[in-house]
């Protein structure tokens, strides 16, 4: 009986938002409230709306999102820790008319893979690099990342990160923006509906620029890690605004006119 009522009600309505077909039906393995799967979904919405699924190849990283290929229903390669942009380079060079994106965490992109990151951007590889910055190593259980904030507690900075032992949080997005090979460098987030809308625009633009062979597009997504940060999802988003944004302010860092 319930079903009939709902069906009748829905009859009068139109669907304005649904999970995109470009996501598989597989349940996300992420912790409740984790930003990773929002970013996955937004990338896949853009792929669906742009109608480029048949031309899109993604590169999944080592990190919490190592299983990204279980969710994003496009051809994908899983890369060694830090090497996603090199793998993406290999793909793009032999298939220059495809849309290629890498998806990397802060440990992946800004620690072990720094050389690949800098040089991929410096060559201006025509790919999109999506960089999910949650200021921590999620997958391995919450160790300090290059982007961990000063004073922030992690399992390898239990008293809080200090400059004396661990140096400064690495603003790698600002670094790659300095390189002439990057065309569009922006910092986004997914903590509010509007932030998600902005991210979607940024991804859409990036694929457009990729089509026009403009160079590397680089999107940092300041995200949360409720488990690693030991907070509820709602708290983690508030913490992100209060603590991450001052150092990692959202907005375009390098944008074409």
């Amino acid at each position: 009986m319930g079903q009939d009522v709902v069906d009748a009600a829905l009859e009068q309505m139109e669907c304005v938002y649904a999970r995109p077909d470009t996501l598989t039906d597989t349940r996300f393995h992420y912790c409740p409230g984790c930003g990773h799967s929002v970013v996955h979904r937004v990338i896949m919405e853009v792929v669906q709306e742009a109608g480029i699924r048949e031309q899109t190849i993604g590169v999944a990283p080592v990190g919490c999102s190592v299983f990204a290929y279980n969710y994003m229903d496009v051809d994908m390669q899983e890369a060694a820790h830090g090497r996603a942009s090199a793998v993406a380079t290999g793909i793009k060079r032999v298939l220059p008319d495809r849309f290629v994106f890498s998806y990397q965490g802060d440990g992946d992109l800004a620690a072990i893979g720094t050389a690949e990151t800098i040089h991929t951007c410096n060559r201006g590889e025509n790919i999109l690099m999506v960089f999910v910055n949650n200021a921590i190593y999620g997958m391995t259980g919450g160790q300090m990342a290059p982007t961990t904030l000063l004073g922030m507690k992690t399992s390898t900075s239990p008293a809080g990160r200090t400059v004396e032992t661990a140096g400064f949080p690495l603003k790698i997005t600002e670094m790659v923006a300095m390189l002439p090979g990057t065309y569009y460098v922006t910092r986004q987030s997914v903590h509010t509906p509007n932030a998600v809308r902005q991210l979607k625009k940024a991804i859409t633009k990036s694929f457009q620029y990729q089509k026009e062979r403009k160079g590397t597009c680089f999107i940092e997504v300041v995200s949360n890690c409720p488990s690693g940060w030991k907070m509820t999802p709602v708290q983690s988003n508030a913490w992100l605004v209060e603590n991450m944004f001052p150092l990692y302010p959202p907005g375009d860092i390098k944008a074409p006119k």
Binding site: Q12, E14, V16, Y17, R197
Partner: peptide
Amino acid sequence: ALVCPDAVITVYREKKKTRVPVARI
């Protein structure tokens, strides 16, 4: 639906103000 990390929300709206659906269902 936009912020839902698990993409479990489908949103419907009354028909008259037609808007292009964000995604096919």
